[in-house]
Protein backbone atom coordinates (compact mmCIF):
# COMPACT_ATOMS: atom_id res chain seq x y z
CA UNK A 1 0.00 0.00 0.00
CA UNK A 2 2.81 2.40 0.94
CA UNK A 3 4.75 1.42 -2.17
CA UNK A 4 1.62 2.04 -4.27
CA UNK A 5 1.17 5.50 -2.72
CA UNK A 6 4.77 6.32 -3.41
CA UNK A 7 4.35 5.22 -7.01
CA UNK A 8 1.24 7.39 -7.50
CA UNK A 9 3.01 10.31 -5.83
CA UNK A 10 5.98 9.83 -8.17
CA UNK A 11 3.77 9.73 -11.29
CA UNK A 12 1.88 12.85 -10.16
CA UNK A 13 5.14 14.68 -9.52
CA UNK A 14 6.39 13.62 -12.93
CA UNK A 15 3.33 14.97 -14.75
CA UNK A 16 3.50 18.18 -12.74
CA UNK A 17 7.12 18.65 -13.80
CA UNK A 18 6.23 18.05 -17.47
CA UNK A 19 3.40 20.59 -17.19
CA UNK A 20 5.74 23.16 -15.69
CA UNK A 21 8.37 22.54 -18.38
CA UNK A 22 5.77 22.94 -21.13
CA UNK A 23 4.43 26.15 -19.60
CA UNK A 24 7.95 27.58 -19.31
CA UNK A 25 8.78 26.69 -22.90
CA UNK A 26 5.56 28.21 -24.23
CA UNK A 27 6.70 31.60 -22.98
CA UNK A 28 8.89 31.65 -26.13
CA UNK A 29 6.56 30.00 -28.65
CA UNK A 30 8.40 31.23 -31.73
CA UNK A 31 11.71 29.87 -30.52
CA UNK A 32 10.01 26.61 -29.49
CA UNK A 33 8.51 26.13 -32.93
CA UNK A 34 11.77 26.93 -34.66
CA UNK A 35 13.79 24.67 -32.32
CA UNK A 36 11.35 21.79 -32.91
CA UNK A 37 11.67 22.16 -36.68
CA UNK A 38 15.47 22.38 -36.37
CA UNK A 39 15.59 19.23 -34.25
CA UNK A 40 13.61 17.49 -36.96
CA UNK A 41 15.87 18.80 -39.74
CA UNK A 42 19.05 17.92 -37.85
CA UNK A 43 17.80 14.35 -37.51
CA UNK A 44 17.28 14.21 -41.26
CA UNK A 45 21.04 14.27 -41.87
CA UNK A 46 21.49 10.51 -42.35
CA UNK A 47 18.28 10.05 -44.42
CA UNK A 48 19.33 13.00 -46.60
CA UNK A 49 22.71 11.37 -47.30
CA UNK A 50 20.94 8.09 -48.10
CA UNK A 51 18.60 9.91 -50.47
CA UNK A 52 21.49 11.71 -52.21
CA UNK A 53 23.45 8.45 -52.58
CA UNK A 54 20.51 6.62 -54.15
CA UNK A 55 19.43 9.59 -56.29
CA UNK A 56 22.97 9.61 -57.74
CA UNK A 57 22.46 6.00 -58.87
CA UNK A 58 24.52 4.31 -56.14
CA UNK A 59 23.36 2.09 -53.26
CA UNK A 60 24.33 0.09 -50.19
CA UNK A 61 24.87 -3.42 -51.62
CA UNK A 62 21.81 -5.61 -50.99
CA UNK A 63 19.72 -2.78 -49.54
CA UNK A 64 17.02 -0.74 -51.22
CA UNK A 65 16.56 2.95 -50.38
CA UNK A 66 13.37 2.41 -48.35
CA UNK A 67 14.97 -0.41 -46.39
CA UNK A 68 17.82 1.89 -45.35
CA UNK A 69 15.36 4.72 -44.63
CA UNK A 70 13.39 2.31 -42.44
CA UNK A 71 16.49 1.69 -40.29
CA UNK A 72 17.02 5.44 -40.01
CA UNK A 73 13.36 6.16 -39.22
CA UNK A 74 13.40 3.66 -36.33
CA UNK A 75 16.56 5.29 -35.01
CA UNK A 76 14.79 8.68 -35.18
CA UNK A 77 11.65 7.38 -33.47
CA UNK A 78 13.66 5.86 -30.62
CA UNK A 79 15.49 9.14 -30.12
CA UNK A 80 12.21 11.02 -30.53
CA UNK A 81 10.81 9.20 -27.49
CA UNK A 82 14.03 9.07 -25.47
CA UNK A 83 15.12 12.69 -25.84
CA UNK A 84 11.99 14.50 -24.63
CA UNK A 85 11.09 12.01 -21.91
CA UNK A 86 14.34 10.92 -20.27
CA UNK A 87 17.47 11.82 -22.19
CA UNK A 88 17.33 15.39 -20.83
CA UNK A 89 18.70 13.88 -17.62
CA UNK A 90 22.19 14.15 -19.12
CA UNK A 91 22.08 17.90 -19.66
CA UNK A 92 20.24 18.31 -16.34
CA UNK A 93 22.97 16.46 -14.45
CA UNK A 94 25.70 18.29 -16.32
CA UNK A 95 24.38 21.74 -15.51
CA UNK A 96 23.40 20.89 -11.93
CA UNK A 97 26.85 19.49 -11.15
CA UNK A 98 28.49 22.58 -12.62
CA UNK A 99 26.21 24.93 -10.69
CA UNK A 100 26.31 22.83 -7.52
CA UNK A 101 22.53 22.33 -7.46
CA UNK A 102 22.55 18.54 -7.70
CA UNK A 103 22.64 18.58 -3.89
CA UNK A 104 19.06 19.88 -3.85
CA UNK A 105 17.91 16.74 -5.66
CA UNK A 106 19.93 14.47 -3.38
CA UNK A 107 18.03 15.62 -0.30
CA UNK A 108 14.54 15.27 -1.83
CA UNK A 109 12.31 12.29 -0.91
CA UNK A 110 12.38 10.68 -4.38
CA UNK A 111 14.97 8.60 -6.22
CA UNK A 112 17.78 10.61 -7.85
CA UNK A 113 17.29 9.05 -11.29
CA UNK A 114 13.57 9.82 -11.21
CA UNK A 115 14.20 13.40 -10.09
CA UNK A 116 16.80 14.20 -12.73
CA UNK A 117 14.52 12.74 -15.41
CA UNK A 118 11.36 14.56 -14.35
CA UNK A 119 13.07 17.93 -14.05
CA UNK A 120 14.51 17.60 -17.55
CA UNK A 121 11.52 17.20 -19.84
CA UNK A 122 12.41 18.77 -23.20
CA UNK A 123 9.53 19.27 -25.58
CA UNK A 124 11.77 20.60 -28.39
CA UNK A 125 12.84 17.07 -29.16
CA UNK A 126 9.28 16.03 -30.04
CA UNK A 127 10.26 17.11 -33.58
CA UNK A 128 12.50 14.03 -33.77
CA UNK A 129 9.52 11.78 -33.05
CA UNK A 130 7.29 13.43 -35.67
CA UNK A 131 10.06 13.14 -38.26
CA UNK A 132 10.70 9.52 -37.37
CA UNK A 133 7.05 8.54 -37.59
CA UNK A 134 6.67 10.31 -40.93
CA UNK A 135 9.77 8.67 -42.41
CA UNK A 136 8.67 5.30 -41.01
CA UNK A 137 5.25 5.64 -42.68
CA UNK A 138 6.82 6.66 -46.02
CA UNK A 139 9.27 3.74 -45.91
CA UNK A 140 6.62 1.18 -44.94
CA UNK A 141 4.39 2.36 -47.79
CA UNK A 142 7.08 1.20 -50.24
CA UNK A 143 7.84 -2.10 -48.51
CA UNK A 144 5.89 -5.37 -48.17
CA UNK A 145 3.55 -5.17 -45.17
CA UNK A 146 4.91 -7.30 -42.29
CA UNK A 147 2.90 -10.06 -40.58
CA UNK A 148 1.50 -9.89 -37.02
CA UNK A 149 4.44 -11.76 -35.44
CA UNK A 150 6.90 -9.48 -37.16
CA UNK A 151 5.15 -6.47 -35.61
CA UNK A 152 5.28 -8.09 -32.16
CA UNK A 153 8.99 -8.81 -32.55
CA UNK A 154 9.54 -5.29 -33.80
CA UNK A 155 7.75 -3.83 -30.79
CA UNK A 156 9.89 -5.86 -28.37
CA UNK A 157 13.09 -4.83 -30.10
CA UNK A 158 11.95 -1.20 -30.23
CA UNK A 159 11.42 -1.29 -26.45
CA UNK A 160 14.95 -2.65 -26.15
CA UNK A 161 16.22 0.24 -28.25
CA UNK A 162 14.68 2.60 -25.65
CA UNK A 163 16.31 0.53 -22.90
CA UNK A 164 19.65 1.00 -24.69
CA UNK A 165 19.14 4.75 -24.91
CA UNK A 166 18.21 4.86 -21.23
CA UNK A 167 21.41 2.99 -20.41
CA UNK A 168 23.37 5.48 -22.50
CA UNK A 169 21.68 8.37 -20.67
CA UNK A 170 22.66 6.85 -17.32
CA UNK A 171 26.28 6.39 -18.39
CA UNK A 172 26.49 9.92 -19.77
CA UNK A 173 24.89 11.40 -16.64
CA UNK A 174 27.38 9.44 -14.54
CA UNK A 175 30.22 10.82 -16.65
CA UNK A 176 28.81 14.33 -16.22
CA UNK A 177 29.16 13.94 -12.45
CA UNK A 178 32.91 13.37 -12.59
CA UNK A 179 33.77 15.17 -15.83
CA UNK A 180 32.44 18.54 -14.74
CA UNK A 181 30.87 20.78 -17.37
CA UNK A 182 31.90 18.75 -20.39
CA UNK A 183 29.00 19.06 -22.81
CA UNK A 184 31.03 17.24 -25.45
CA UNK A 185 29.85 13.90 -24.08
CA UNK A 186 26.86 14.47 -26.41
CA UNK A 187 29.24 14.47 -29.36
CA UNK A 188 30.73 11.20 -28.12
CA UNK A 189 27.23 9.75 -27.96
CA UNK A 190 26.40 10.95 -31.49
CA UNK A 191 29.65 9.52 -32.83
CA UNK A 192 29.12 6.10 -31.26
CA UNK A 193 25.46 5.83 -32.25
CA UNK A 194 26.11 6.86 -35.86
CA UNK A 195 26.93 3.17 -36.46
CA UNK A 196 23.26 2.38 -35.74
CA UNK A 197 21.86 4.21 -38.74
CA UNK A 198 23.21 1.99 -41.49
CA UNK A 199 22.93 -1.70 -42.46
CA UNK A 200 25.17 -3.88 -40.30
CA UNK A 201 26.60 -5.55 -43.40
CA UNK A 202 28.51 -2.44 -44.53
CA UNK A 203 30.82 -2.66 -41.51
CA UNK A 204 33.81 -4.98 -41.06
CA UNK A 205 33.39 -8.17 -38.99
CA UNK A 206 35.14 -6.82 -35.85
CA UNK A 207 32.91 -3.73 -35.87
CA UNK A 208 29.82 -5.87 -36.45
CA UNK A 209 30.78 -7.93 -33.40
CA UNK A 210 31.40 -4.77 -31.39
CA UNK A 211 28.02 -3.19 -32.21
CA UNK A 212 26.20 -6.46 -31.62
CA UNK A 213 27.84 -8.06 -28.62
CA UNK A 214 29.92 -5.44 -26.75
CA UNK A 215 27.64 -2.40 -27.12
CA UNK A 216 24.52 -3.56 -28.98
CA UNK A 217 24.09 -0.39 -31.03
CA UNK A 218 22.39 -2.41 -33.75
CA UNK A 219 19.28 -2.44 -31.56
CA UNK A 220 18.83 1.30 -32.09
CA UNK A 221 17.79 0.84 -35.70
CA UNK A 222 19.13 -2.10 -37.63
CA UNK A 223 17.72 -5.08 -35.68
CA UNK A 224 14.15 -3.73 -35.25
CA UNK A 225 14.12 -2.87 -38.97
CA UNK A 226 15.49 -6.26 -39.99
CA UNK A 227 12.59 -8.13 -38.34
CA UNK A 228 10.07 -5.92 -40.15
CA UNK A 229 11.90 -6.61 -43.41
CA UNK A 230 12.06 -10.35 -42.73
CA UNK A 231 15.86 -10.19 -42.82
CA UNK A 232 16.45 -12.08 -39.60
CA UNK A 233 19.98 -11.80 -38.33
CA UNK A 234 21.52 -14.57 -36.17
CA UNK A 235 23.17 -11.86 -34.07
CA UNK A 236 19.84 -10.61 -32.65
CA UNK A 237 19.91 -12.98 -29.66
CA UNK A 238 23.41 -11.88 -28.71
CA UNK A 239 22.34 -8.23 -28.99
CA UNK A 240 19.29 -8.77 -26.76
CA UNK A 241 21.31 -10.50 -24.03
CA UNK A 242 24.01 -7.87 -24.30
CA UNK A 243 21.50 -5.00 -23.95
CA UNK A 244 20.35 -6.37 -20.58
CA UNK A 245 23.94 -6.53 -19.35
CA UNK A 246 24.52 -3.03 -20.72
CA UNK A 247 21.58 -1.70 -18.70
CA UNK A 248 22.77 -3.39 -15.49
CA UNK A 249 26.29 -2.07 -16.07
CA UNK A 250 24.99 1.46 -16.64
CA UNK A 251 23.06 1.43 -13.31
CA UNK A 252 26.16 0.16 -11.54
CA UNK A 253 28.30 2.86 -13.14
CA UNK A 254 25.79 5.60 -12.30
CA UNK A 255 25.60 4.57 -8.63
CA UNK A 256 29.39 4.40 -8.42
CA UNK A 257 29.77 7.90 -9.86
CA UNK A 258 27.06 9.35 -7.60
CA UNK A 259 29.00 8.02 -4.61
CA UNK A 260 32.01 9.95 -5.89
CA UNK A 261 30.05 13.20 -6.15
CA UNK A 262 31.47 15.99 -4.05
CA UNK A 263 30.17 19.52 -3.62
CA UNK A 264 30.52 22.54 -1.41
CA UNK A 265 26.79 22.90 -1.03
CA UNK A 266 25.75 24.83 -4.14
Amino acid sequence: MIAENQFIRGVKAHFQAIKAALAGRMAYRGDFLLSTIIMLMAEMFAPAITFLIYSNGASFPGWGIYEVLLIQSIFMMARGIAFPFFFGMVWNTLSRVREGTLDILLIKPLGLVHLIIMTAFDCNDIGKLFGGVLLFAISMKHLPFPGFMQWVQFLLLFILSLVMLFAFALIMSALAIVWVGNSRIFEMFSAVTSFSQYPLSIFSKPIQTFITVIIPLGLLGFFPASVLLGKYSPQITAAIVSSIFFLIASFWFFKKMVRQYTSTGG
Partner: peptide
Protein backbone atom coordinates in the same frame (compact mmCIF):
# COMPACT_ATOMS: atom_id res chain seq x y z
CA UNK B 1 34.81 7.58 -34.93
CA UNK B 2 32.70 9.80 -37.20
CA UNK B 3 35.29 9.33 -39.90
CA UNK B 4 35.26 5.56 -39.46
CA UNK B 5 31.51 5.49 -40.13
CA UNK B 6 31.96 7.63 -43.26
CA UNK B 7 34.79 5.32 -44.33
CA UNK B 8 32.53 2.25 -44.24
CA UNK B 9 29.57 4.06 -45.82
CA UNK B 10 31.58 5.12 -48.86
CA UNK B 11 33.47 1.84 -49.14
CA UNK B 12 30.10 0.06 -49.36
CA UNK B 13 28.61 2.60 -51.78
CA UNK B 14 31.62 2.52 -54.11
CA UNK B 15 31.44 -1.25 -54.49
Amino acid sequence: VFFLVQYFIWHAVFT
